[in-house]
Amino acid sequence: MPLDTSMFEGIRVNRPATERRADGFGSRRSVKKAYQAAWLVNAIRLIDLTTLAGDDTRGKVHRLCAKARNPLASHIREGLDLGNMPLTVGAVCVYPTMVPHAVEALDGSGIPVASVATGFPAGLMPLHLRLAEIEWTVAQGAHEIDIVITREHVLTGNWQALYDEIMAMREACGDAHLKVILATGELGTLSKVYAASMVAMQAGADFIKTSTGKEGVNATLPVSLTMVRALRDYGALTGHKIGFKPAGGIKSAKEALQWQVLMKEELGRPWLEPDLFRFGASSMLGDIERQLEHHVTGRYAASHRHAMS
């Protein structure tokens, strides 16, 4: 849609009130016992299982993809009585040069390959080079592209420049889904986070995402609540549903529950499905598997008992 600054200009986000509301997702609202196990199984379906390291190799990516195909040990599946229910992660996320390895390893699984692009994580490259990286990555077989924005556009309030940049990236993605990383830890205020979320959605984002995972501050519940409220407002004004992806620093099963409670309470049941909600995570799956084994056996297993992604 065309840029419409009236949808966010003049809106100020009250940080103390946002933080009080966010605190409730981790304390007053929780699920226990069999319900907790069910929510943790659902969290597995929402994970973008990720490796974004300088020492990534074909072997490392293939190992990650094997875990993506079979995220739970067979005895845990049996103990949960999952039967033949298909259970995989939501996607595997890698660097552009690792995309062919991921596509090879996930062939026939139905698991999409996501890739970061546009000069990740800083994004400080000429626009034409960032667009070329998107096009090259899509040509390698990536189904989803996680792009980074120019933070300067947000910090200076140059909304037209931000809109034009994201729209160009949307066009470069073609049929691939576009996830717009806002790098919220570097945007200064929650009001700027809200405005940047609105601009990204107007410019064609399929998902808005909190962080690269490389900032000093990554996904937090107050920031996520701000972005989710932007999603809700945008949907009310346009009728379109946009997805959300918190990423960076999310490591525990407890956090998986907190973010799902946020989505359920703020946006409703449809946002507990992988087409509208994802976690960007690598180590969280291991803790979820550990908690589910405790639910099945009554004992916590040593970490070395679970296959590492």
Rank of each mutant, 00 (worst) to 15 (best):
E293W: 03
H153W: 15
T137P: 01
D48Q: 05
V138L: 04
I208M: 14
M1S: 09
V217G: 11
G83Q: 11
K67F: 12
P222F: 06
P86F: 00
P274A: 15
H128T: 15
A139I: 02
V92R: 01
N158C: 10
A195K: 07
K179D: 08
V99N: 08
S115R: 02
M201A: 08
M201D: 03
P270I: 14
L64W: 02
L3I: 01
L267N: 02
G248Y: 09
E273S: 15
S191I: 04
I181D: 11
D275T: 14
V31Q: 13
R229N: 10
V13W: 02
G239E: 11
I44M: 12
G188N: 14
A172L: 11
A200W: 08
Q291K: 07
V217W: 12
S224Y: 01
I76D: 09
R269W: 15
I76Y: 00
R20Y: 14
A161R: 09
P16D: 14
A91Q: 13
I145P: 09
A37H: 04
F207E: 12
L221V: 07
I145T: 04
A302T: 08
T118N: 13
Q36H: 13
W136N: 01
A91H: 10
E293D: 14
P86T: 04
A256R: 07
G185A: 13
G298S: 02
V223Q: 02
K264Y: 14
W136P: 01
H177K: 15
I44R: 09
T50V: 05
D175E: 14
L237E: 09
Q36G: 01
V296M: 10
